[in-house]
Design a protein around this nucleic acid. Structure first.
Lengths: 214, 214, 214, 214
DNA sequence: CATGAATGAGAGTTCATTCAT
DNA sequence: TATGAATGAACTCTCATTCAT
């Protein structure tokens, strides 16, 4: 039984590694060539597998794509939740920290993040299965809720102007996605330095000043 | 001669109408189903033509797509340029007007605007012809320049904090695209009311407060 | 009535010129790009007409192609017939003259001649109407008969070895077509000087020596 | 290991058979209907495969066509080279043998040979990839060189008149291609007996007499 | 578990040809 | 007579997906 168990565990590990292998390959390719221009065959080659093998790990192309994004959204959601629950920081400090956090998340995996926003921004969602869409939405909603909560706090503490905290959360999200996509789009034309950190930092600074109670 | 001339004019009018007919059909479909999921056949049917006829008016699918976007970008570019050159308004008033302007542009043709941002945000650009990409970039650059100029003015007048005006222009652009895509994405899940105007308004208000010189 | 007549004549002249205009354009294009790669639109543009207009003068693309070839075949047939009937020349002199004649025909219109042999050599014939095929065959047969007759004479006069004159005619034809196509094919790779005259000359010289009665 | 090896071998065999299956189907169809009138679908059906499957074995239609021709050209090239290097034969005997050899090659695969000459004679070459064209030319050049060498020998031995051996090689080639195409073209009109052997034989006999040193 | 082989379905595109004007 | 506009019918090629092994 011990043996069977070990085998079982090994198999699962193996499976997870294969999945990761495929996801990594896909991530790179989707980022480089875009979703529709990336073929399963491409991914298979990059992952050193046959294209048929992909289907052992993912139901289909869309599923693969969504899996990719869920991963990061989960991470982001956790980080935001953590920030919101952080006891030792004032709302203003939290906002300051948010700047770092968002850039951190981007830095953690820029490719996947851009993929995520592409998904949000384009065809992607329309061809996804209901179930996947639900999952993605649930996570995105959780992220936004965490953001809103931070503003709620600040308002309650009298440090922020009394705007609708949900709207404020949305705006942060908008700035984040907009900035990532925009800087990415600029980089596509002219792959120079990466201005995201600066742009995002400035945007959030201005935003902070803009909501600070007089 | 009069006859020939009239015929000529009529023919041109006819042509323009056909183009518009096709562009309208395409716009709706791209918006509904996304670029790659929309077939030429779909567009042709929607426009009540044969698919071969589409090729009389557009070189290929990409060309059709780009035409769609150029149209609006041109419009936006003109409006922004107009605003920048407006003599009677203070920088602050211009910022206030910008809010309206952006919403106007969205209202003028939401479908096409979303298509435009999808293009920026996704696969689109990668598969476009060099020439088209250049055109699009040129127009986008012009928009951004107009935005930057407005901030330049405000800073020169001492009304705005001395941030880099180009970066400020970028941030407005980011907020605009981000907001349109985000509200759109929300609407896709749950096509309720349209919150863009409010969200965009609030974002720009906060932004204005944030850059106002003390 | 005189007027009507003149008009009638003018119209016919006009028609003939248009036909020629089209045939010339087609000839050049078929030669340059090959039959199937040449579109009616191409021809129309080259002839400064609309593609629809082509159909006023030719039933369809194949018809146009065949017309082209009939023209030259007719010319060739007449020349060969003339040579055969020539009274003042011995069979050997006729063979010598044949050399010139063939090169003349080529020189008269290389494009069309190559087209003709392409037609013989490739797809062309298979998609032609029965009627056209018949016409072409009749003319080709007449050419070959003339050639055969020349050899018949030579044999009767005891100057040529007693080979089957029809076979000899075929061989001349074979050498002619083969040489034109081969030199053309060489020229396609490397458009240098034109060796046809030499090659053809040498081939026929050798052939002459080969059939000369001892 | 033995098993893996055997499987490997079996797979390769299978692959080769499929390729041959396709090539055979294509050969027949190209011959019957010509290159451009033959669709991939036709070939697929004849080979009892899906049209998509064709693309597993050949890059595209042109590639398929060229493969067909390379095959035979290679064979011909080897045979000619062998003849040229043959030690036991005099130049005259080699010429005699050439007659047989050429007919042999034709007999070996008339369809493919005619396809080859069609290719040389028509559109084909113009739409082929540079690389393929090069390959074909290289082989054709090799054939011609072998022919030229045979004549060189004969001239050196004083058995042939001192014509340019390269030109003589060309003429043989011309006669061969011309004869194949011409007899084929006659057969197309009237599929009776096959006179190629006779015609070719006679042509080369006459040619031999024509270059024999006095 | 992994894969090579195969395919169905469809996409974009081209073009000879027609027809109202 | 001439044409601009339109189209039907193909054709080549691609790709996600399946299945026997």
């Amino acid at each position: 039984m011990g043996i069977a168990e070990r085998r079982e565990r090994e198999r699962e590990l193996q499976q997870k590694m294969r999945r990761k292998q495929i996801l990594d390959a896909a991530k790179r390719l989707f980022y480089e060539k875009g979703f529709s221009a990336t073929t399963i065959e491409d991914i298979a080659q990059e992952a050193e597998l046959s294209s048929a093998a992909i289907y052992l790990y993912f139901k289909n192309k869309d599923d693969l794509y969504a899996s990719l994004n869920l991963q990061l959204l989960e991470y982001l959601s956790q980080r935001l939740d953590g920030l919101y629950r952080e006891e030792g920081l004032s709302s203003e400090e939290k906002l300051e920290t948010l700047k770092e956090l968002l850039y951190d998340v981007f830095d953690f995996d820029p490719l996947i993040l851009i993929n995520l926003f592409h998904l949000q921004a384009s065809d992607g969602l329309k061809n996804l299965s209901q179930e996947r869409t639900k999952q993605l939405n649930k996570l995105a909603a959780r992220c936004l809720r965490s953001l809103a909560k931070i503003f709620e706090q600040g308002i309650a503490e009298g440090r922020f102007v009394e705007y609708n905290p949900i709207a404020l959360g949305d705006i942060i999200w908008i700035v984040f996605t907009g900035a990532v996509l925009w800087e990415e789009s600029k980089r596509m034309m002219n792959p120079r330095k990466d201005y995201l950190k600066q742009t995002l930092g400035l945007a959030i600074d201005i935003f902070s000043r803009g909501i600070k109670a007089a």
